[in-house]
């Protein structure tokens, strides 16, 4: 079995009001020195088989077709 993690984040320049609200809340907790906060999503997947190259290809297609909206989001894939 292959385990993979997909991280989806908003592209640079795309407004992230949730990140801004989290940033404000962290400052409210008296954490200092916070430049900025951007939030995103993490997907942990378990895939059958052991072919990592195939898994990589499949994961990329999953990201393009569903997990990320590439109009506004970037994704990164890591296989462990």
């Amino acid at each position: 079995m292959i385990k993979a993690r997909v991280i989806v984040t908003l592209k640079n320049g795309v407004l992230d009001p949730q990140g801004k609200a989290i940033e404000g809340a962290l400052r409210g907790l008296s954490f200092s020195g916070i430049g900025s906060v951007r939030q995103g999503k993490v997907f942990d997947l378990e895939l059958d088989g052991s072919d990592k190259a195939k898994a990589e290809t499949d994961l990329k297609e999953m990201c393009e077709r569903l997990l990320a909206n590439t109009v506004i989001e970037n994704y990164s894939i890591s296989i462990t």
Binding site: L15, P17, I72
Partner: peptide, 11 residues
């Protein structure tokens, strides 16, 4: 359609 709809700026 082109573009995307995101969380309202006011949240």
């Amino acid at each position: 359609l082109p573009g995307a709809l995101m969380r309202n700026a006011s949240l």
